[in-house]
């Protein structure tokens, strides 16, 4: 009897724990921020052919003592670059929309990742294939413009 009670208790508690757990949808986190500088890391771009749209992903870690804001993005690989986010609506359809400037509080990270925030490269001027690299510039309110080269790769 005691064993059965324990079994049921574990079952109920387990169910509640599973039901209550949820993944954070936040794009921001503050783990492992290198203090003293704004750091861009883990950058990569998807392959795409000329005339298509591309996407660039990276992590922006604001290790400075001030809040900062991502104001604008640019790339010489495309006619235009914009900050976009993918979203899912109440009918489970998915879409994409431009987003405004993104604040990055001090000691926090902004994650640009597949299925979420990303830099959209609109109307690519050339093919970008696996093994190539793409230059992107990010303009911040506090630290100014940072430019980096990101490799083109396939998502795993």
């Amino acid at each position: 009897m005691t064993l059965l009670k324990h079994f049921l208790l574990v079952l109920i508690v387990g169910s509640i724990a599973i039901g209550c757990s949820s993944k954070s949808s936040s794009q921001k986190e503050n783990k492992n921020v290198v203090l003293g500088k704004l750091e861009l890391s883990n950058g990569w771009a998807r392959p795409a052919s000329q005339g298509q749209n591309g996407a660039v992903y990276l992590t922006i870690a604001n290790g400075t003592a001030s809040d900062d804001t991502l104001l604008n993005v640019q790339s010489d690989a495309a006619d235009r670059a914009e900050l976009h986010e993918s979203y899912k609506d109440e009918n489970s359809t998915v879409g994409m929309r431009p987003v405004d400037r993104q604040p990055i509080p001090e000691s926090e990270k902004l994650l640009l990742k597949p299925g979420g925030l990303h830099i959209m490269l609109m109307n690519l001027k050339r093919d970008i294939a696996v093994g190539d690299s793409v230059s992107v510039s990010l303009e911040f309110a506090q630290v100014g413009t940072r430019t980096l080269q990101v490799p083109v790769k396939i998502q795993e």
């Binding site: 998807r46 749209n53 976009h84 993918s86 998915v94 994409m96 990303h118």
Partner: peptide
């Protein structure tokens, strides 16, 4: 194919 994010995912 003009979808740069979700469709490649």
């Amino acid at each position: 194919t003009h979808c740069p994010d979700v469709c490649p995912v």
